[in-house]
Nucleic acid binder design. Sequence first.
DNA 1: CGCCGGTTTGAGAAACATCAACCTGTGTGG
DNA 2: CCACACAGGTTGATGTTTCTCAAACCGGCG
Lengths: 250, 250
Amino acid sequence: MLEYVTDLARPNALDERPVTTLDAPACRCGLGAGCDRRALTQAGIAWTHDQRRARQTIYRRGDVTENIIVICSGWACRYNQLSDGRRQILSILLPGDIVAGAALFSPVLDFSVQALTAVRYGEIARGQLRERLSPPAFLDLVSQLLVAGQAEADAQLFDLGRRLADERVAALVLRLRERLLARGEVQDGAEGGSFAFPLRQQQVADIVGLTPEHVSRVVTQMRRSRLMDIADGFLTIHDLPALKRLGDLR
Amino acid sequence: MLEYVTDLARPNALDERPVTTLDAPACRCGLGAGCDRRALTQAGIAWTHDQRRARQTIYRRGDVTENIIVICSGWACRYNQLSDGRRQILSILLPGDIVAGAALFSPVLDFSVQALTAVRYGEIARGQLRERLSPPAFLDLVSQLLVAGQAEADAQLFDLGRRLADERVAALVLRLRERLLARGEVQDGAEGGSFAFPLRQQQVADIVGLTPEHVSRVVTQMRRSRLMDIADGFLTIHDLPALKRLGDLR
DNA sequence: CGCCGGTTTGAGAAACATCAACCTGTGTGG
DNA sequence: CCACACAGGTTGATGTTTCTCAAACCGGCG
């Protein structure tokens, strides 16, 4: 397997320094009104917004945190990596997603987290959160996010276990499209709309369990057959029905 | 792909009839003291114990349920299946596991559930559960189970995306061993102990994303190299360190 | 005994990985 | 401005893993 050369190996003290924003802009994280710095501060809950640039590491497997982390803007991912370089992205984190539900109970993370684009994220001490937020609301919120994560994982499991390369890519695109639709981040274009797609083919490969070369072949093939196109950080769907025939769970 | 011939296609009215046990025996489901028929009954919470024989279907994808389902004894699995027969098992359900955290919010199931051995399971109306159980305890319980499920899914995702056939099988065995260890269901034998292993190779294949033929080759190979052995419904580990070298996440 | 579900084995095909070259746009230093 | 490096993507030739299809095997059971 490839020894993926990433910047994981060169932590840069300056780059990794947390930058606390004093005025948190409007935040579409799932905590809803909860993710309002002023409101939380008034409630006596410590809340910090940090940010990372694209490709920077946010957490490493084994790191310890007492915080619940929520993505506020940008894309990130959870991944695991073997010592021989094989890497698998476990999930794509979009604004509103909880990075680690696991952190609710065990402070030590079982995966690494990396920014895919520039990312802003918030951290709340879990003890505080659990004490202060009214329990039923908190239950619904967290459980709902956990359940959504499980559903995503289920779909991904099926893809990796039982689908061919082109079907996997199609399914990935469709699921991303669904999630972005729900956030109103899909522009409707010719056939199936288009949306910002910051992933490099290497990263797509790490999601769908293929090599970057093979992803390139699949994407090129899809471009030629006018299924969809990825260019300039945007993904445009040209034939949504055909894509669904490939990648939908039926 | 194969058209897997399962008994999904021949529902048997007699076999599928729920059998409510009047005296629920000791139950190691995660609800702990909660899963005590008398206690729950006294608290006014409706609770039923049903059972299924091996290979029977408990739920089908798309079924609607207002209940939270917990496995009390036996093995079951969640799976999804394409119309062309491709099937992927999403998770193995052991006693104490919640079948569908999803049912907490959406009554319609996004997967099917099948008994792998004879299975006893309990159902509690979710509304009742959420109202009656004291919220903090409920939060911890459910979230903890959800988080554990996510961790399992993460490991499985890595295996399916980035591991070779023998590594996948080794990893599956190791993870099952861990879960059974926690339940005290591993007898320590010669090297790595042994435990009941009711899975057919077809089912193993549906977990690790391979064909049954290839699973047979891998298992036979492992038997010959004295890594482990599966026989008579029991799995015996002969060389735990070697197995871990193959399948552990490092 | 014959049947049946499950497993094993083999030969050939398909999907995907590997390795290597090349291409293109972009930034960088002289 | 040019030379150059570099990251990301594309393409091709070849190798490996796994699948497919088919047959044989094996223990249990009517």
